[in-house]
């Protein structure tokens, strides 16, 4: 059946089988391979994207269920190609070494971006709770938590600076 989804702000229409999972729609049909396909069992969270703003595991959502919805993937996080265009969460992962192999990173970025949109100053415990549905086998999570705190502080600082500038 034909579905129309707004992916990273761009409206795309494709003819898909009802059994196609959102992960494979993004990766195979749209070639947006930033969304990783991991466990396939709703466990690891590598495939996390935002569906109408809400982070979800895209291996457990049918593409047809996203018809008419907005889907945001890791490819849509950065404003441009320069390093300074990266989302503060991405910059935090760079600054704090929040990844090693990087497989879980796209999902981690999408979840923690959603967290900061909701709670701009989360405690380390809140961050750990937010990412508790995602598995990282490299970092022991310490640096991921630091990276998100880094981003929270950077965004707050930016907000204060903007206020002062006014």
């Amino acid at each position: 059946m034909e579905i129309t989804v707004t992916v990273n702000g761009r409206e795309v229409t494709r003819d898909v089988e009802p059994r196609l999972l959102l992960t494979h729609f993004l990766r195979d049909h749209l070639r947006l391979t930033g969304t990783h396909w991991g466990c396939d069992t709703t466990t690891c969270g590598a495939c996390t994207v935002r569906l109408d703003g809400v982070p979800v595991k895209s291996c457990t959502v049918l593409a047809v269920m996203a018809d008419g919805a907005r889907v945001d993937t890791v490819e849509g996080l950065a404003a441009g190609m320069a390093e300074t265009d990266l989302d503060p969460v991405q910059q935090g992962f760079v600054a704090c070494h929040g990844l090693q192999c990087g497989f879980c990173t796209p999902g981690m970025l999408m979840t923690t971006r959603a967290l900061l949109d909701r709670d701009p100053d989360p405690s380390p415990a809140t961050i750990r709770e937010a990412i508790s549905g995602q598995i990282c086998r490299c970092t022991g999570y310490e640096n991921i938590v630091r990276a998100v705190r880094w981003a929270a502080e950077a965004e707050q600082q930016a907000a204060t600076t903007t206020e002062v500038a006014r």
Partner: peptide
């Protein structure tokens, strides 16, 4: 119950 991402759905 499960994790925050599952609880979103």
């Amino acid at each position: 119950i499960a994790d925050p991402l599952v609880r979103n759905r």
